[in-house]
């Protein structure tokens, strides 16, 4: 590790890290917001579930580099536009979380749902006050997987020249220089761990009622 090089490149690294965080977190939030209603829909309808989960599965099989390259065709963007990355990762997040949200709602005990209904909760009240809160542990488990994968997926965009921590890898390769590569890997892992930890904390805060913290 060349500490001196790191010191000189500090501003650049912070800039790359900032982009990496944005490209990871924005799709995560967008994906969750889109997956919640879709997952609810899949949970509600026996016919829609296999359809949505099937399409989600197919989208998930498309390799990320391929998706990054194909999206400009659909969106009309330039190949270097970071919007492609946001769109691609949002697609992956939705694909992962649709099934998670549907399964989370499915995991709410039938007795609980029936009790809410019998006490006179309207269906939206039951969804917001009973089913979603009870489904939080399952949803956050899925969100953790999505967050950690997104961090890794973003770095692939470096091969197309979109700046984020992955740029440190390509730079290191071109210069045959280990320092940026190791720094990039470390920062990626740390970022993934921080996001993972934040979701764990959020889950713990939202579910004081669970017997114990959900193990990873």
């Amino acid at each position: 590790m060349n500490i001196e090089w790191l010191g000189r490149q500090f501003d650049t690294i912070v800039f790359l890290l900032g982009w990496h965080v944005l490209l990871t977190v924005i799709p995560l939030i967008l994906g969750l917001l889109i997956a919640l209603p879709l997952g609810w829909w899949a949970h509600r309808s026996r016919r829609i579930y296999p359809l949505l989960v099937g399409v989600a599965g197919l989208l998930y099989t498309v390799p990320s580099l391929a998706l990054f390259v194909l999206l400009p065709l659909v969106l009309g963007t330039k190949i270097l536009d970071p919007l492609n990355i946001v769109a691609a990762l949002t697609i992956y997040t939705v694909a992962l979380l649709v099934r998670v949200v549907a399964d989370a709602l499915e995991s709410v005990p039938e007795d609980t749902v029936q009790a809410a209904k019998a006490m006179g909760y309207r269906s939206w009240q039951s969804l917001l006050k009973v089913e979603l809160p009870v489904g939080v542990p399952v949803i956050s488990a899925g969100l953790r997987v999505a967050a950690v994968s997104n961090v890794s997926l973003v770095s692939v965009a470096a091969l197309l020249g979109i700046p984020q921590l992955g740029s440190l890898f390509t730079q290191g390769f071109q210069l045959r220089f280990f320092t940026p590569i190791i720094a990039g890997i470390l920062l990626c892992v740390i970022l993934a761990m921080i996001l993972d930890g934040l979701i764990i904390l959020l889950n713990r805060w939202l579910t004081p009622w669970t017997p114990k913290v959900v193990a990873s």
Binding site: V148, V151, S152, G166, G172, R176, C188, V189, D196
Partner: peptide, 18 residues
Amino acid sequence: ANALRALPSVGLLILLVL
């Protein structure tokens, strides 16, 4: 499983090649 999921594969690949 979790640690390897967090490792960026591009970085790993380039590191090993070098």
